[in-house]
Design a protein around this nucleic acid. Structure first.
Length: 858
RNA sequence: GGAUGCUUAGCUCAGUUGGGAGAGCAUCACCCUUACAAGGUGGGGGUCGGCGGUUCGAGCCCGUCAGCAUCCACCA
């Protein structure tokens, strides 16, 4: 017997272990068609947040749904080593433990990092368990494990040999806190307040000056020239002359290049080739040297004279003061301009010339773009995200993949100790004693990019898993990592496996707080999914997360909605409790026979619901799918059929009762099965309480639409009955009568109503049917007939009510007449529509007549 | 400077080929009716951001304007 109230803690207890131990999460039934989702591997840096909960719940719903549809589903788990983020956290931990991290060896650091990984992996496993994810743990992977490392080396060497990976000196984004290079997507541009400084540069052999503007005066130590536009009449006379750099007295040539924008700043631009990407190009073009002026921590280096050792921003201030003293300061203006920050450390990123490893993107991007135009493209859901992807691919720069870190895949390049020659190979050279391996590791996303195939055994293309489960079917992820991850998986997969990595990408948004703000540590507005589960249960959280937004749209976390999700589950719980309590102890599920009109009606509604749920599940529109089920559960099943069933069950007719048992059971079972992918715990609990069941709901099939079960012959009469009941209830409330007040009714209809129609009507209106021809009453009209409610309400109120109804009817008639009086409408609208409007108009006219008669008789 | 999304009830949001706008929460009235008071029954509340267009008919399609949000972008 079920408890009176749904208790998620009790319901969820032990179920996950059971599923897992029984092997229900394991893929490998080769008699079925495979269906694969790989989890986006979470970072081993901390706890999972609501965004993960949302993401994985969508995946789990799809997996559980597909499994019930008879697929051999593989939901592959794994985690990401998250290079920079994890290294920072491990370093911090070491520092807290009193370790001098500047002296620690690579090996010692890595040992601590692996311990960290174990600890956090455990946390994540616990969270996956609480969320109820149907993950096949026998196939779990880690981006830094042996097999994935082999895949990474294989890809690296292959791309290198094809000329798609190269080592070169270019301007990269330098994070002076983490002391590593970053890729472009790891730099966040935000609008910061700053200043535009104007300095005068004295012209050599002249009394004139050139005024140059800059936002970063400290880079003046790296300047090699001043550039003006050749079309700029203000400055053309100076081209070829020289100026004095007010920062250090260097003599710099004035050159002309089209790049300079006449209208920006003063039209004269200082050029720092080692610390600005555009200046770098000019430096290359005119063969200037490219002096680097920063140390790795963004302090000033030996090229900066007295400023050596100063932090870049201190140097800026000091330098400005000195320029002021020298009389070369012109002015400064406050401006707001985009400044690059490191995604991880938030430090202001310094563009810096550096020797790094790069992936040559153009050929790979073009391949991905042309693939999107073909038949085997990756389908984005919603489709607009395909555009986001292709626009990025169209203008992507080369990808800087080397990182000056320890935690990651070490680049498989080896330098000869004497000659310096570089060998790139999967395995180290045989005479390794003569070589030194590249110190740098790869960008974390380099290994993540291989995830859909490296986890399935690639590069061993004859691996059973790779052959069977690749390409994967669906990838679910947030729009915020399309560039980081989705796009890179696509081009790497196309290049390495000659196939797309997944057929579909289901994109969702971000979870925000109730005010619509992004959840962040600094705001302290993050919500811990485990805390939510603790209070409301995993099912309520899962249901909330997947039924409160449209695909691709952001969502707000609103606790009341989690509460109402839990209330909905309680509703289902209680409806189950009712059904199970009325079923006879020897109930045995058989074919539904001898159905009453009422029984047919609910079965019809259920079939429609199944059809709608199915079609929306196929579109990954979980909000729409669940809304259909919700309406069925509340309005059709609980509010109507379940109440009505009490009539049949209280009769003496065994045939009627038996039909009702079967229909109740049929509906309940289908509700449980339909909602199961969303809320597996409660569904399993209720399922196991059914009189007849398999060992687990996970072994069941998902309900299918069976049009042959539909019989709508008496649906209209059933709806008629509901209308009558509703109107009597409404009448009582309007007339301040108690809900159970006894009234007398009469009913006129020219249709033979289904058996027990009057019994239902009397019972649910607490009223008595009779012939009230000689009494005064309120008349109500319906398509199938007319009801009169005997009334002793005073005539004033009745008159007001009638007048209101008349106004409403007149309004309807006006609308109809206007529409039908429009010749264009008659000519162009579909015939059905015109007929419908004609019928409606006739009906309203009839009703109006009745109402007027009634009013006159008062 | 490009691109995208959003603007619908007091709040948070749905609205699937264009044919009289819905949910949750809130609110009002009545009810502890034997599945559920974290409930039930019934009600109130919306010129669907503004303007213009297409159409017999527009929340939905087109144009335009405004506001909000996000992403991309090297303007010193």
């Amino acid at each position: 017997m079920l408890e009176k109230r749904y208790n998620p803690k009790e319901v969820e207890k032990g179920k996950y272990e059971l599923w897992k131990n029984k092997g229900y999460f394991k893929a490998g039934d080769i008699s079925k068609k495979p269906f694969t989702i790989v989890i986006p591997p979470p970072n081993v840096t901390g706890k999972l947040h609501l965004g993960h909960a949302w993401d994985t719940t969508i995946q789990d719903i799809i997996i559980r749904y597909k499994k019930m549809q008879g697929f051999d589903t593989l939901y592959l788990p794994g985690m990401d080593h998250a290079g920079i983020a994890t290294q920072a956290k491990v370093m911090e931990k070491l520092r807290k433990n009193g370790v001098d991290v500047t002296k620690i060896s690579r090996e010692d650091f890595l040992k601590t990092a692996w311990e960290w990984k174990e600890e956090y992996a455990n946390n994540i496993h616990e969270q996956w368990k609480q969320m109820g994810l149907a993950l096949d743990y026998s196939r779990e992977r880690f981006t830094l494990d042996e097999g994935l490392n082999f895949a990474v080396r294989t890809v690296f060497v292959d791309l290198y040999n094809k000329g798609l990976i190269y080592r070169g000196e270019r301007i990269i984004n330098w994070d002076p806190v983490q002391k590593t290079a970053l890729s472009n997507v790891e730099v966040i541009h935000q609008d910061d307040k700053g200043y535009m400084y104007y300095f005068s540069y004295p012209i050599v052999d002249s009394n004139e000056k050139l005024i140059v503007a800059t936002t970063r005066p400290e880079t003046m130590f790296g300047d090699v020239c001043v550039v003006v536009n050749p079309k700029d009449r203000r400055y053309s006379k100076y081209v070829g002359m020289k100026v004095i750099n007010p920062a250090n007295g260097d003599v710099l040539p004035i050159i002309a290049d089209e790049y300079v924008d006449l209208s920006f700043g003063t039209g004269a631009m200082k050029c720092t080739p080692a610390h600005d990407p555009n200046d770098f190009l000019i430096g290359e073009k005119y063969h200037f040297p490219k002096p680097i002026i920063f140390n790795k921590d963004a302090t000033m280096n030996e090229k900066c004279g007295v400023y050596q050792g100063m932090d870049r921003f201190e140097c800026r201030e000091a330098l400005i003061e000195n320029i002021k003293k020298d009389g070369n300061f012109v002015k400064m203006e406050e401006i707001v301009h985009p400044v690059g920050h490191s995604e991880r450390s938030n430090a202001v990123v310094e563009p810096m010339l550096s020797k790094q490893w790069f992936v040559k993107m153009r050929p790979l991007a073009d391949q991905a773009l042309s693939n999107q135009k073909g038949k085997n493209k990756v389908n984005f859901i919603p489709p607009r995200f395909a555009k986001v992807f292709s626009q990025w691919m169209e203008k992507v720069d080369d990808w800087c993949i080397s990182r000056q870190l320890w935690w990651g895949h070490r680049i498989p390049a080896y330098y000869h100790k004497d000659s310096g020659d570089c060998i790139v190979s999967i395995e180290p050279p045989k005479d390794m004693e003569n070589y030194i391996q590249e110190e740098d590791v790869l960008d974390t996303w380099f290994s993540s990019a291989l995830w859909p195939f490296s986890t399935l055994g690639w590069p061993n293309t004859s691996s059973e898993d790779f052959k069977r489960y690749f390409p994967t079917d669906v990838l679910v992820t947030g729009y915020d990592i399309i560039f980081f991850w989705v796009s890179r998986m696509i081009f790497q997969s196309l290049e390495m496996t000659k196939s797309i990595p997944f057929k579909k990408v289901v994109i969702h948004g971000l979870v925000r707080d109730e005010k619509g703000r992004k959840m962040s540590k600094t705001l302290g507005n993050g919500v811990d999914p485990i805390a939510v589960i603790d209070t409301y249960g995993a099912d309520a959280l899962r249901y909330f997360l997947t039924t409160n937004s449209t695909p691709g749209q952001d969502m707000r976390y609103i606790e009341e909605k989690v509460v109402s999700s839990a209330n909905y589950l309680n509703k289902i719980w209680n409806s189950a409790r009712y059904v199970l309590s009325v079923l006879p102890s020897d109930f045995n599920e058989e074919k539904m026979v001898c159905l009453s009109s009422m029984d047919h009606w609910i079965v019809n509604r259920l079939e429609e619901t199944i059809r709608n749920v199915e079609s929306n599940m196929e579109k990954y529109d979980f909000n729409a799918a669940s809304t259909h089920l919700y309406n069925f559960v509340y309005d059709d099943f609980c509010s109507q059929y379940l109440e009505m069933s009490k009539v049949a069950l209280s009769s003496d007719d065994e045939r009627k009762k038996n039909a009702t048992y079967h229909v109740l059971y049929h509906c309940l079972k289908n509700i449980i099965l339909l909602i199961y992918p969303y809320t597996p715990f409660i569904a399993e609990e209720l399922y196991l309480n059914l009189p007849k069941h398999l060992d687990s709901i996970m072994l069941e099939s998902y309900p299918k639409y069976h049009p042959q079960l539909i019989d709508k012959e008496h649906d209209e009469e059933v709806e008629f009955l509901f209308d009558l009941i509703k109107d009597v209830r409404n009448y009582k409330i309007l007339n301040k009568l108690a809900p159970n007040a006894k009234l007398e009714l009469s009913l006129k209809t020219n249709k033979t109503l289904f058996e027990d129609f009057n019994v239902y009507l009397e019972r649910f209106t607490f009223s008595k049917l009779g012939d009230l021809q000689n009494k005064q009453g309120e008349i109500k009209n319906y398509p199938l007939g007319q009801m009169t409610i005997y009334s002793n309400v005073d005539s004033g109120e009745l008159r007001a009510k009638l007048e209101k109804d008349i106004a409403l009817e007149e309004n309807e008639i006006m609308r109809g007449e206007k529409m039908l009086g429009n010749e264009n409408f008659l000519a162009k609208a579909p015939k059905d529509k015109v007929e419908l409007e004609k019928e409606k108009l006739a009906k309203h006219r009839l009703v109006l007549e009745e109402l007027k008669k009634k009013l006159a008789s008062l």
